[in-house]
Design a protein around this nucleic acid. Structure first.
Ligand code: FES
Ligand code: FES
Lengths: 144, 144
DNA sequence: AAATAAAAAGATATTAAGGTCTTTTTTTTC
DNA sequence: GAAAAAAAAGACCTTAATATCTTTTTATTT
């Protein structure tokens, strides 16, 4: 569904939001541990997100990552599009050159509904939405 | 969503069903052209499907691929599972080790609904369903 | 039997994703 | 100012997906 990079990005951002509420910062190492992801890989992804101002970073001792107020209201849709591009939103599910009503693939009509659901899910969920959920202890960023 | 292989497989099977109604067979070359897929790649995928008896093949002049009566009633779900495995049906969408109600990821609940839709779409559509649709000329296996 | 047409099999190549390691830069603390 | 801690940058490695090419086997047609 999503690329690994994208999965890590989503979990990392949720983790950062969750653990920097009081003006603290979290290091790559912490994020990697907290989301069960390879440290150096997550570093690269955060670098990318940082360039796009989706997460803030400060170097040096006591540095790390944190979110600006606005960053907390970023939707999953935004993250997915930044990392994986908009293929999932526009491509034909059977790989036709274009997805259109004019020359639709056999599953176009039915897939359209599925896609609508998926997109709604991505649009309606922001980083901060998850924080509330995580606080309740009923959701996890890693398991097993 | 699906791998290339899987996309090609689905389109190839639909194409075969569509073009062998009268006891004819179609060659790899035809299938590749008809579905806008690389010939040798599609050959390998059909080989695999052939081993699994999801499509029949006959060698030699006048040979080619065709479907047994039963093959026409194969669902997309079956094809996807044979080619891509059941990851899409069982894996956590954020990549947690397991997808479970016990230790769900933050989007588990919402994604569950999306997944249900997707699976229903895959289960409810068989190769022969598409033939009827294609006959009407309103759907395509390639475009642009 | 020879020629031919087709799939099967298998070897190889290419590309992209995923992952790791090393060096550099920045900042803080002492 | 030196040492340390952190991210940034970049080089590199590994694996899997995608794709192509070549050879072999099988069946048909003449
Ligand atoms: S044409 Fe295939 S999903 Fe729209
Ligand atoms: S735990 Fe993530 S989808 Fe179920």
């Amino acid at each position: 569904m999503f690329s690994r990079s994208c999965e890590y990005a989503i979990k990392a951002l949720i983790y950062v939001a969750q653990n920097t509420k009081d003006g603290k910062r979290v290091s790559i190492k912490e994020i990697a541990k907290g989301t069960d992801a390879p440290e150096h890989f997550v570093a690269k992804i955060l670098q990318e997100l940082s360039k796009k101002k989706m997460v803030m970073s400060i170097k040096g001792p006591n540095g790390g990552f944190y979110l600006e107020e606005g960053g907390k209201h970023v939707s999953l849709e935004r993250i997915v599009k930044e990392i994986d591009g908009d293929g999932m939103f526009t491509n034909c599910v059977l790989g036709l050159k274009v997805c259109s009503e004019k020359t639709p693939c056999p599953v176009h009509l039915e897939y359209k509904e599925v896609k609508k659901n998926l997109i709604r899910m991505l649009e309606n969920n922001t980083i901060s939405d998850f924080n509330d959920k995580l606080d309740s202890g009923k959701f996890f960023l890693k398991n097993e």
